[in-house]
Nucleic acid binder design. Structure first.
Lengths: 215, 215
DNA sequence: ACCTGAACACCGTTCAAGT
DNA sequence: ACCTGAACACCGTTCAAGT
């Protein structure tokens, strides 16, 4: 357990981890290993002692790179938001407007299910609440901005009270996707992985249909 | 801080808490106080030491009534599910079918916002996952059963693949409500309390409209 | 500049001992 | 039967000391 390292890790961190960490890659190693532990066992099982042990480093070595454990988690969340934003952004390349929302819905849901550790840390209150890092807050805005952009495009300018309608549409879509993601991650949704995904897509289309009928 | 007690608490637990706990009301006191702490400060701030201190009892007194801390949390969740089920059930008394879903949506959302501590513990994975209490699992089923019942009523029997449609409709409504609840609790939704509630109701109606159009 | 290792103040849990 | 208080094995964090 103590020296469990995949070939990839050894490659990444150098052949002599105990000394190579003197050259500045411990920070990277801490983030990567923390991400793995969170994904596999959940945030609550991440301890600095275990982290140090697995990287072949003292348990207080972290403090040379981060003010505290919380800040390490903020960094994990930040990288999650960037990847999440990329995934949502990539899903926007589509022809029909309807297809965009289905693709974004799938991208959202897939990211959450494939990166449950990341997703939980990203939307956990305690981690982001008092994070004074401007970077993480900027990164957190981008995924939502993708959703907002597409809703704006899909909402005619002729509408009276257009701003309110847009806000309602965005919060509705986001809530639906966040709800499906959280319930799926926490094992509350019965059925196979693909049947749940089908339900999710159907629900996005149902909601979209209702939203559009109000135009 | 150590002996902070409201008049209500003293009334509930007796005038001489240190001795009255010998008569079997410590279990009740632990659950009530834990509920308050979780609601006000979150689960992560609940410690057995603080709990004992505030109830005027040793930190290990809990173990006479619960196997461990986790089981106390399960009891808190269990009582939450009962009250949650009651709230949803009460919302079902209505004339139009459409109104039922709006009322249930409001009841769901209001419960979550008024009992954020309870709601988080109830849907937190780590608490319920390994809870071997049959009671809590039964209590957890009732709120969802309310939603299922109304969807069943609202889905014509003539439908082909009716079971799948019902499952999709239920998971959609539940995800929408859970998403709105969690995002609101965690402070991710902008706007006033009532404007967010309006958006939530509008989204429920949008989703419902889409679901019904597929009949 | 970067890491170690002992120390500190916490935590949940156990258990012999008190009443 | 119910609770105490010391003890144990953990935890995050600090800091003087090593290289």
């Amino acid at each position: 357990m103590k020296t469990r390292k995949t070939p990839d890790e050894i490659l990444k961190t150098g052949a002599k981890p105990a000394t190579s960490y003197h050259h500045g890659n411990l920070e990277r190693g801490l983030i990567d290993r923390a991400t793995e532990v969170i994904a596999n066992q959940g945030v609550e099982h991440l301890t600095l002692r275990l982290l140090g042990e697995e990287l072949g480093v003292s348990r207080s070595a972290l403090y040379r790179h981060f003010p505290d454990k919380q800040t390490l988690l903020v960094r994990v969340a930040e990288e999650g938001f960037v990847r999440f934003g990329d995934a949502l952004d990539a899903a926007r390349a589509s022809k029909s407007a309807e297809d965009v929302f289905v693709r974004m819905g799938r991208a959202y849901f897939d990211f959450a299910r494939q990166n449950p550790g990341h997703y939980r840390v990203m939307f956990d209150t305690t981690v982001l609440k008092k994070a004074n890092s401007a970077k993480v807050h900027a990164a957190a805005k981008r995924p939502l901005a993708c959703l907002v952009d597409e809703v704006v495009k899909d909402t005619p300018e002729t509408d009276k009270d257009r701003a309110t309608l847009i806000e309602t549409r965005v919060s509705g879509l986001w809530s639906l996707l966040h709800g499906y993601s959280m319930l799926a991650i926490n094992g509350h949704l019965a059925g196979t992985s693909s049947s749940v995904a089908k339900s999710m897509v159907a629900s996005v289309l149902y909601l979209l249909q209702g939203q559009r009928s109000s135009r």
